[in-house]
Design a protein around this nucleic acid. Sequence first.
DNA 1: CCGCTCATGTAACTGGTTACATGATTTA
DNA 2: TAAATCATGTAACCAGTTACATGAGCGG
Lengths: 176, 176
Amino acid sequence: MGPRTDLEQVVLGVVWKKGPVTAHGVRVEFSRSRTEHWSGSAGAIYPLMSRLEEAGLLRSSIDRQQARDRKMYRITTKGLRQLRRWLTPPLSDTAFSTQFDPLRTRVFFLGSLEPAEQRKFLDDAEQALQRQWAEHRDDRNDYRKKNRPFSAMAEEGAMATCRARITWIRSLRKKI
Amino acid sequence: MGPRTDLEQVVLGVVWKKGPVTAHGVRVEFSRSRTEHWSGSAGAIYPLMSRLEEAGLLRSSIDRQQARDRKMYRITTKGLRQLRRWLTPPLSDTAFSTQFDPLRTRVFFLGSLEPAEQRKFLDDAEQALQRQWAEHRDDRNDYRKKNRPFSAMAEEGAMATCRARITWIRSLRKKI
DNA sequence: CCGCTCATGTAACTGGTTACATGATTTA
DNA sequence: TAAATCATGTAACCAGTTACATGAGCGG
């Protein structure tokens, strides 16, 4: 009965990386993320981490040294094995399938706008993507400073897709 | 009381593009899509299209000409106005925010694998992305044949992000 | 006549969300 | 001393999903 959802795997990964850590600490990590895919809401994280502990993938202990009691989570050997399994080929199909892109989705229906409005849409999109790229660049630089090379590499992935989308939007702009 | 979710907007768009169309026809359109973000399940589509009709964005009529009765949906003037509003800047923040990418998500935790396993992960990913790119290219060519320029442009967006991700994966491969 | 596609729906479930409740500690 | 942050949780809700039910028409 290992983790079934990506969120469970990611929480496992966060505990591996930051552990020992509180459920609150995991939530903070989610709130810092640029993507809005998961909010890291209390209603999701607290029951989820209890489940992972019950499954033997996490283990918790009460830290009474601090000003107030804190439930510290660590990853277990079994948990680490599970994390590695999640990353070891062959990966599930869903790991590779093209993801939902609200911008691309909208382009399918761009023909319903007047050409002038279409151009406005594309100009707006390009600006937003440029802001987004800059945010990921800042995050990457932060990760480099903190000596977290894999997180920096992940941010470079986000930067690369931002650049590709900007180039794509510009090419549409020329066609219209 | 307009549409609140992207799925409702997309269904509105599909009816605009393919209409008059049955709820089943909309479902088929979703099943053809490469992305797995929405399954287009009956439990989602049928109640949703009823809601859109109740809100005055779609209008239906029973077609008795066919072998069996079919409920044909068309977009209303109000519906088209709503579709355009969805595409008209300023777009909601969620339209631009960096999307969830299961591959990038995994890279954050790639440090938990041995270097040899890391390389295997990246090789596997590159192959999958290349297959994915080819699928989107085929789809784009189909759309071109069918004279659907905006759908073709959308597919080119997917192709561009695939290429960017391949380049990114290769650059990680060199670093490791 | 068997299985496939077209066609329309409903019921139970699920993996999250928002909002609420509580209280200690820290900072302005 | 008020507001923000740390910290732990629960309850109600929501937008989907899977699975089921039903039936017509059609090709092999």
